[in-house]
């Protein structure tokens, strides 16, 4: 059944709007957390304590790959949302699964980057700059990981319950979360990686 054709009581409709607004407010508070992590990073970007700098550590190719994968995953989630509106359960499952794969690629690339840096002696304990880098980028990665878990849970819900109104409402909030993380990533590559290699 398409979203439009679903009968939702006025009270439930109000509840879904309230949940969406509440979740939006949570995202605004999360935005402040990230903003302050960015501010901390900018304050500490020069505090390399004689250790490696961004120029020596960052790889533009890897950052580009991570960006591509994350951007695509936002798009595939969008396709899942379209399939949801059309009431097409199998398409929703397919696009959600592809989104998980793309998100997992992102995490894989990022873990690879972190491990590589740690092995070179450029872990967070090396300097203030690296502490700030790992915390900022790592917090984003943690959010993406939680998002991936959430998508998996929703795949389960869609599979077992079908495209009901509560499931749809949760999927749309997940979408807000996922797209928000993409915005944070845009700021990350603009503040950390691109200026870092200059």
């Amino acid at each position: 059944m398409t979203l439009e054709a679903m009968t939702v009581s006025p009270r439930d409709a109000e509840k879904y709007e309230e949940k969406e607004f509440g979740f939006w407010l949570y995202l605004m508070s999360d935005a402040v957390i990230f903003a302050l992590l960015f501010a901390t990073y900018l304050v500490m970007v020069g505090n390399t304590a004689g250790g490696p700098t961004g120029k020596e550590l960052f790889s533009l190719e890897r950052a580009a790959a991570e960006t591509l994968v994350l951007l695509l995953s936002s798009t595939t989630f969008g396709f899942a949302a379209v399939a949801l509106s059309a009431g097409d359960r199998s398409k929703v499952l397919m696009w959600l699964a592809i989104t998980v794969l793309l998100g997992a690629c992102f995490i894989f690339l990022e873990i690879g980057e972190f491990c590589g840096m740690i092995q070179e002696g450029a872990g967070p304990e090396r300097s203030g700059f690296l502490s700030a880098f790992f915390t900022l980028v790592g917090t984003h990665g943690l959010h993406v990981s939680v998002g991936l878990l959430w998508i998996c849970v929703m795949i389960g819900q869609v599979f077992f319950k079908g495209l009901t109104a509560p499931v749809a409402s949760r999927l749309m909030r997940l979408g807000l979360f996922w797209h928000f993380l993409d915005i944070i990533w845009v700021v990350i590559f603009s503040v950390v990686y691109l200026p870092g290699v200059l």
Binding site: L3, E4, M6, V8, D12, A13, E14, K15, Y16, E17, E20, L60, A63, A64, T67, L68, L71, L72, S74, T75, G78, F79, A81, V82, L84, S85, A86, A165, A168, S169, M172, V186, F189, S190, L194
Partner: peptide, 28 residues
């Protein structure tokens, strides 16, 4: 009527990804 957002077409996402890719590729 349902309080749940509806996205009927993939059009905004396709425009979005194209623009985003361009706006990423140029600074990179």
């Amino acid at each position: 009527s349902s309080g749940i957002p509806i996205e009927r077409t993939a059009r905004p996402y396709l425009i979005g990804i194209v623009l985003a890719l361009i706006l990423t590729a140029i600074p990179f």
